[in-house]
Every structure is written in structure tokens, then in C-alpha cells.
């Protein structure tokens, strides 16, 4: 088997299974910390399969944009998985513009919000309103982080930003750590994880994502759940990529080792999220901007480094 084909196979396996395993890992970690055995790692997959066999209930109020939204979201997320360098080795285009990736994320978000408004239910609509608020705050934080490194590299192309032979950034692991953390914190907000939103509890307590997809069922719900997990995995992958650049020994390692570290890093972060979700409580809605401020602070520090960085040369 030639290498290109195996690369493709590896990539497809990652796209299909990594999101499921990441969700499974978080659930397993939380269960272990609560002294439960917990569901098997592949439980999210079994859930998806079960959802696919079920029939779908649609609201009479809906016009069609509801189902269109989940289809477009998945297509868009797969496109991002294809473009963005969240894995070390993957087939894909030779450029991944950071603004493009951010606005592709915005496409998914916009359609999810529209889908939530389609049923005329107040749950979905308030979820959408909160999602809009969160994204408004978190987007600058994540974008600014990548832009700071981009400014040091002189390119808005993520592949060039992350390219290993980048001599300019070899001496500054700090900026990578800052950006990686900023993206990780932003991911918690974007993926509606614990301190912002609780994805596992009863409806009244889940305020953002679960509220938006309340009306979804059957295959439609399966699509949305998978899209959501894939989004989280891509963002985790991006922060792992940043963390990897912070450690010079990984920087200079063999390609195969790097790929392995990348994957294990994603699951390590998933375990971290699980631990974090077990020991923290959900923040009051009005406190959420303060949490996002941590992410923004990291990015601002990174941008300060970028402002000063080039002038020293």
C-alpha cells in the first residue's frame, strides 16, 4: 500500500472516530472521577447509530431551514476538517487561511442559530441569542491569538504559521503557550462545555447548545451531535498544534512521532476537560464574560509579543 493511500485512510479514520473518542474520553474521565465505571469509549458512536435508526419528529412551524441547517453545518465542518491543520499529517490543500477558517466556523454557527429559531420555540431562540453573545466575545480572543503568531510569521496562512521549519519563532515558546491556552479556553466556550454550559444536565440548566438543538431528533440530531463533536476536536487539535510548537524537543522530532504526539495530545486535553468539568461548577450567565476575559488576556499578551517582536530584529 502506498503512503498517499494510507495517509488518506488515516485521515478519514481520524475524522470519523476522533470526535467520538474525544466525547467518550471526556465522559469516561468524568465517570471515573465520580467512582463510576462509565460507558464504553465508543458509547457516543452507539448513540449515533441508535439515533440513525429512529424516526424524526419535526415541528409544524418549521420551514425547511431547520434540516438544511444541520446538513450545511456538517458539510461546512467537514470542509474545515479538510482545510485546517488540526492533524500533523493529512491530505489537503496547501493553504489554510486563518480568516477563512474563522468565517467557515461562523457559517456553521449562523445556520445552527437559524435552525434553532425555525421551530418558534423559546428554548431554541434563547439558546441562539446566548450563542450569538458568546461567539461575539470569544471570536476576537481566538482570532487575535493566531493573528499574533501570523504577524510574527508574516502570513495569515495557518500552514505557514505552523510550519516546523519556521526559524523566527524557534526562540519564543511563550507565545505558542499563550495562543494554545487562549484557543483551549475559547474552545470550552465555543463547544458549550462546562464553566459556560453544561451539556449533560437537564434542559433547564443547559442554556446554549442543548437548548438550540431541542427540537432535533433522529438522524437530524445525529448529524448535529457529530458536527458539534467534530468542531470541538478540530479546535482541540489546533491548540495541541500550538502547544507542540512550544516544546523544542517535539519540534525537532520525527514526523511519525509528531503525528502520534498530536493525537495523544488531543485525548490528553479531552481528559483535562473531563477533570475540569468534574471539579468546576457552571458559571452564572452574567459571569461568563469574565471567564472569556481570561482567553482574551492570553491573546492580548500574545499580540503584545507580536507588536514588539519584529521590531527587535
Amino acid at each position: 500500500m502506498n503512503s498517499a493511500l494510507s495517509l488518506w485512510l488515516f485521515y478519514l479514520l481520524c475524522v470519523v472516530f476522533a470526535p467520538i473518542l474525544v466525547l467518550g474520553t471526556i465522559r469516561k474521565t468524568k465517570a471515573r472521577l465520580q467512582n463510576r465505571i462509565g460507558p464504553p469509549l465508543l458509547q457516543p458512536l452507539f448513540d449515533l447509530v441508535k439515533l440513525c435508526r429512529k424516526s424524526e419528529t419535526l415541528s409544524k412551524t418549521m420551514c425547511g431551514i431547520f434540516r438544511l441547517a444541520s446538513v450545511i453545518s456538517l458539510a461546512d465542518m467537514l470542509l474545515i476538517a479538510w482545510i485546517a491543520p488540526w492533524l500533523c499529517y493529512k491530505p489537503g490543500p496547501d493553504s489554510a487561511d486563518i480568516f477563512l477558517i474563522f468565517y467557515l466556523f461562523a457559517l456553521t454557527r449562523m445556520f445552527t442559530m437559524l435552525g434553532a429559531l425555525d421551530s418558534g420555540s423559546a428554548f431554541g431562540a434563547f439558546g441562539a441569542s446566548r450563542e450569538a453573545t458568546l461567539s461575539l466575545l470569544v471570536e476576537p480572543a481566538a482570532l487575535l491569538g493566531f493573528i499574533s503568531i501570523g504577524a510574527l510569521t508574516g502570513s495569515s496562512d495557518l500552514l505557514q504559521i505552523l510550519s516546523f521549519s519556521n526559524a523566527q519563532l524557534s526562540g519564543s515558546p511563550g507565545i505558542w503557550l499563550l495562543v494554545g491556552t487562549a484557543v483551549l479556553l475559547a474552545n470550552l466556550v465555543e463547544s458549550s462545555r462546562m464553566p459556560v454550559d453544561d451539556p449533560t444536565t437537564h434542559l433547564e440548566l443547559t442554556m446554549v447548545h442543548e437548548a438550540m438543538i431541542l427540537e432535533a431528533s433522529g438522524r437530524n440530531l445525529a448529524l448535529i451531535e457529530y458536527t458539534h463533536a467534530l468542531r470541538m476536536t478540530i479546535l482541540l487539535g489546533l491548540s495541541v498544534q500550538c502547544f507542540m510548537r512550544a516544546i523544542p524537543s517535539i519540534w525537532n522530532a520525527e514526523p511519525a512521532v509528531q503525528g502520534l504526539i498530536n493525537l495523544t495530545g488531543i485525548f490528553f486535553l479531552a481528559v483535562l476537560i473531563g477533570i475540569f468539568e468534574s471539579i468546576s461548577v457552571k458559571l452564572q450567565w452574567r459571569k461568563v464574560p469574565e471567564f472569556i476575559a481570561y482567553s482574551l488576556t492570553m491573546s492580548l499578551l500574545a499580540s503584545l509579543i507580536a507588536i514588539g517582536g519584529r521590531a527587535m530584529k
Binding site: 424516526s55 424524526e56 419535526l58 415541528s59 409544524k60 418558534g120 420555540s121 433522529g218 438522524r219 437530524n220
Partner: peptide, 11 residues
């Protein structure tokens, strides 16, 4: 999605 069985119900 096209092949999935659907039913209409209220919100």
C-alpha cells in the same frame, strides 16, 4: 436525511 422517516408534530 432524505431517507429518514419523519412525522409532523407541534413544537
Amino acid at each position: 436525511l432524505k431517507t429518514s422517516r419523519t412525522r409532523k408534530y407541534s413544537t
